[in-house]
Amino acid sequence: MTHRTAAAPPPSGTPRASLEVPASVVAALLLPAAADATEDQLRGARCIWCEDGPLQAATAVDLGEQRSPAGSWFPRACQRCTAAWAHRGLFEHAPMCEQCTDDASRCEVGLILYRLIRQGPRP
């Protein structure tokens, strides 16, 4: 059985396509500051949260170009960290979002955070 807001998981062993996250959702993920990241994290070679890497294009979560006073950076994350931070983000977002409290199926941020949680690795 699949949930109507989440894509069915791919068959075991199938690489997943690179995931891209809209800027509105990246804000809910609470990225670390660019000043606290290593060079590999800034260019997306290693996970922005756990430094796992090198990340594979087929499984990394692309968090898009970010801007800081020092310039642009391109964070990516492993699926495990993305799911964990999406869970935290959804926990913070949903109670404060009028749309989530009225009808969660209409909130793009909430739905994408939920999908990121579902696409994380299974124990």
Rank of each mutant, 00 (worst) to 15 (best):
T14V: 15
R118F: 06
D36W: 01
S68P: 09
L31W: 13
G120L: 10
A37R: 14
A33N: 13
R43H: 09
A45W: 00
G89A: 02
A23N: 07
S12E: 12
T38M: 07
P15R: 08
L29A: 08
L29F: 11
D62I: 02
A86F: 06
G64C: 10
C100M: 05
V61T: 11
P11A: 14
G64Q: 00
D36H: 13
A57V: 04
A8G: 07
A57N: 02
A34C: 13
V26R: 12
P10T: 10
M96S: 05
A23D: 10
R115A: 15
T5C: 12
D103R: 11
L90R: 15
A23T: 10
P15K: 03
R4P: 14
C107Y: 09
C100H: 03
T2Y: 13
R106W: 08
A57T: 04
A34V: 01
A45G: 01
M96C: 08
L42T: 08
G110D: 12
S24G: 00
S12M: 12
R67S: 10
L29V: 04
F74G: 03
H87V: 01
R115G: 12
T82M: 13
Q56W: 02
L113M: 01
A60Q: 06
G13K: 07
A83W: 07
H87D: 11
R122M: 09
P121V: 05
P121D: 14
C47R: 07
S24V: 06
A23F: 00
E39H: 09
R76L: 05
Q56M: 01
T14F: 04
R80V: 04
T59Q: 09
